[in-house]
Nucleic acid binder design. Sequence first.
DNA 1: AGCGGCCACTGACAATTGTCACCGCCGGGT
DNA 2: ACCCGGCGGTGACAATTGTCAGTGGCCGCT
Lengths: 202, 202
Amino acid sequence: MIRILLVEDQAMMRGALAVLLGLEDDLEVVAQVGTGTEIVPTALEVRPDVALLDIELPGISGLEAARELAARLPECRVMILTTFSRPGYVREAMAAGAVGFLVKDGPVEELADAIRRVLRGETVLDPALAAATLRAAPNPLTARERDVLAASEDGSSIADIAGRLFLSPSTVRNYLSAAIGKTGTRNKTEAALAARRNGWLG
Amino acid sequence: MIRILLVEDQAMMRGALAVLLGLEDDLEVVAQVGTGTEIVPTALEVRPDVALLDIELPGISGLEAARELAARLPECRVMILTTFSRPGYVREAMAAGAVGFLVKDGPVEELADAIRRVLRGETVLDPALAAATLRAAPNPLTARERDVLAASEDGSSIADIAGRLFLSPSTVRNYLSAAIGKTGTRNKTEAALAARRNGWLG
DNA sequence: AGCGGCCACTGACAATTGTCACCGCCGGGT
DNA sequence: ACCCGGCGGTGACAATTGTCAGTGGCCGCT
């Protein structure tokens, strides 16, 4: 019996997947949670064979949780199940020690089988996705540039961002200018969107 | 046997829901599609009792499809199943003649039951959501203001937007200024985000 | 010890954006 | 016939944003 921890923030998706996986007679969903913060505590308690993690979650992200699980519960395989096949996500997932990366617009039928393959020691990663990730440029942004872009995602003015990050407005403008250059965009809004699309903002 | 047309763009979600609904012995998913454009043709062909529609879809939106279904296949009940409980969405769904509005972060268990209730002639709509929708201001934006905001969502400059909509840049700035005023925001990025959040951009 | 990269900041400048007042045109009510 | 509201536009102005050049401090590498 393969013991699964299911992590997904959308309750209906989570419930549907749990029912679905429960129908397989070698699989068992031993816990399901909807936030990032619950992942590690729950995993330490129920000691699942596999953790199936969404990335974009309330609390900490699935990628951070994956890193922590690798350190604190190394016998638990980590698989990522996400809406977005952003190059940065794939890269980070692999770096965090995940052994599977599935995209939610693939067929459901693949899911149970992917879990079994991971338990047999295989790594599950769509070859086309792997190739696209390798082809894409790795994250060229510095930590500060990421901070500033993330803070500008809600349309804040430079003055707001500076206030929130305790930086001078001029400094913020310089980071934004650098980010605009690196992303090949024309203003901070486009830069933030591009960085988000590439999975460069965590 | 209740015959269901299932519309949802995320394949894994669609597949999982189909399996789940198929487990109920009075429900039958007679067709499933993943784009807005397929909805009406498929419905006319399979003549379902209920169409369960996502809103944000490739092609036309679920709300547009709902309007068309009401006109061309009035015996088919329309239910909306969406991620976002945006006031504008609820309003438009009801105006389009939908008899159910479900949010994807509710429990799966409710889904099958909601379908049965709709078939018995009930309207399914969370009272708290209904209240919140009535409390929220109705869409104050004119058609042009919506166009301009939608065109600015990708961070385009005013000149770009003007080119795309065949308007003078000054006109675009005037519409944006009006939209910024009506949304109570400080610049076009915030205005576009606010309008999107309220479900004012379709 | 010297070099390069990132961080934090300043000041100057140009370009873009946001506001306002004002123009005419049209279509719907009353 | 009149008014109102939406549409499309102009020009002027202020504020914000983006670019560039330059200052230092700090850290890691060779």
